[in-house]
Design a binder for these strands. Structure first.
Length: 224
DNA sequence: AACTTATCCAACCGCCGCTAC
DNA sequence: AGTAGCGGCGGTTGGATAAGT
């Protein structure tokens, strides 16, 4: 493997530790679990292998389609992509992409380039609403990812940041404009969390780590 | 059977943004 | 304002195994 493989005993110790103390505080896990591993190794082992409900084996056709679609929208944001594939880890998705799909992508991109000449795609503009839950990396991004972010940037609609209320009002205005652009498809979206999040935002409860405006806009893109 | 090449995937590495001090 | 520590992320590595010659 890429490093020193985990033994069954180490797995058992880590599981026991997580069950006892919960996730997080990874810097303490090696000590608490009695493992001679760094915090990152413990976290990775848990997230990619030991965590409950991890789906193993081949990717289903629907999953592959979803990965392709999400990658087109998000670029190499593996954790975000994996977040929408229940039971799959970011590492799994990344490995699958690198092994199976990256080659296919070149072919698809060539086709897309041809299609793009024939049809102009209209996308929602205010893509930087909300802070988002994930990290942002400017370095190490693929050209396609940078392209996605550039495409997603809202250069024409800048927020007046004088006051928080004003900003929230702007967010609402922009999302409504966005909904108009998308043909008001929000009412047809089937996934519960989207509606819950939307209602929560409308009720002034703010966004959570599970949901933000970016999620809504992404879902709208996926819905197309 | 022996060797080479390709593929898979677990683990590691370095960097980033956030937070607390 | 500066910085150390942390969690988290994407890119890369390298051993195991399968497939090909």
């Amino acid at each position: 493997m890429g490093g020193v493989a985990w033994t069954e005993e180490e797995d058992h110790l880590l599981k026991k530790c997580i069950q006892q103390y919960g996730e997080g505080k990874w810097h303490r896990v090696p000590l608490l679990a009695g493992l001679n591993r760094c915090r990152k190794s413990c976290r990775l082992r848990w997230l990619n292998y030991l965590r409950p409900n991890i789906k193993r084996g081949n990717f289903a056709e629907e999953e592959v389609e979803m990965i392709i679609k999400l990658h087109k929208l998000l670029g190499n944001r593996w954790s975000l992509i994996a977040g929408r594939l229940p039971g799959r880890t970011a590492n799994d998705v990344k490995n699958y992409w690198n092994c199976h799909l990256s080659k296919k992508l070149n072919v698809l991109e060539a086709e897309d380039t041809q299609l793009a000449r024939d049809a102009q795609v209209i996308r929602p503009q205010p893509r930087n609403i909300g802070s988002g839950s994930g990290k942002r990396r400017d370095q190490g991004q693929s050209p396609s990812e940078k392209g996605v972010q550039q495409e997603s940037s809202m250069s024409s609609l800048t927020f007046d940041l004088e006051g928080h209320n004003h900003m929230l009002q702007s967010q609402q205005d922009n999302i409504y404009a966005c909904l108009d652009q998308q043909g008001s498809i929000i009412s047809e979206l089937s996934m519960d969390f989207q509606l819950e999040g939307f209602e929560a935002m409308m009720n002034g409860e703010g966004s959570s780590s599970q949901w933000d405006w970016g999620d809504l806009l992404l879902d709208m893109d996926l819905y197309k």
